[in-house]
Design a protein around this nucleic acid. Structure first.
Lengths: 72, 72
DNA sequence: AGATAATGTCAAATATTTTTTACATATCGA
DNA sequence: TCGATATGTAAAAAATATTTGACATTATCT
């Protein structure tokens, strides 16, 4: 399951938002800190809804947070 | 699970792409036609990766295919 | 040193997505 | 009318995402 073709800027965006913690982001999004951690580290593909909610917290379009890099 | 805050334009985009069938879209995306049908009808939130692959088939940004409409 | 907070990880349980198989309906041509 | 195709649906199984509880490490602060 690892090695997703999707990267993200969650860590960077958390830093830009007052050093927001994974726990705080999880609280705002409605998931646990472990889930935030796993998504941030690219351990699996989140649901589209969770992805949208994360982007929403940072007031960014989804594609400014998650990038799709399809393999060859 | 139903009643997602996410809508999509898959049916419209299939029509614009030579009346592409759900089965053909599923084949191009790598999921079954039942999965395409369920996503198209908004029965559940697909994985972010499947959402990206669908947008990719239509050569559209993800947010041109799926729209997030958060509740109040 | 001790306490606290943040992060990474893990295993087991739960929830959700996706597949598989199957059936029903509707439409379109031959 | 018959056969083929497209779509909607459903139930069970499989795969994947998410939660829960726990423990370790690192950094920071007093």
């Amino acid at each position: 399951m690892p090695n997703l073709p999707i990267s993200n800027r969650i860590r960077e965006l958390r830093a830009q938002h007052g050093e927001m913690t994974q726990q705080e982001l999880g609280r705002l999004v409605g998931v646990t800190r472990q889930t935030v951690n796993a998504i941030e580290l690219g351990k699996y593909s989140p649901s589209l809804e969770v992805a949208f909610r994360i982007a929403c917290v940072f007031k960014q379009p989804l594609e400014a947070v998650f990038h799709y890099e399809p393999g060859p």
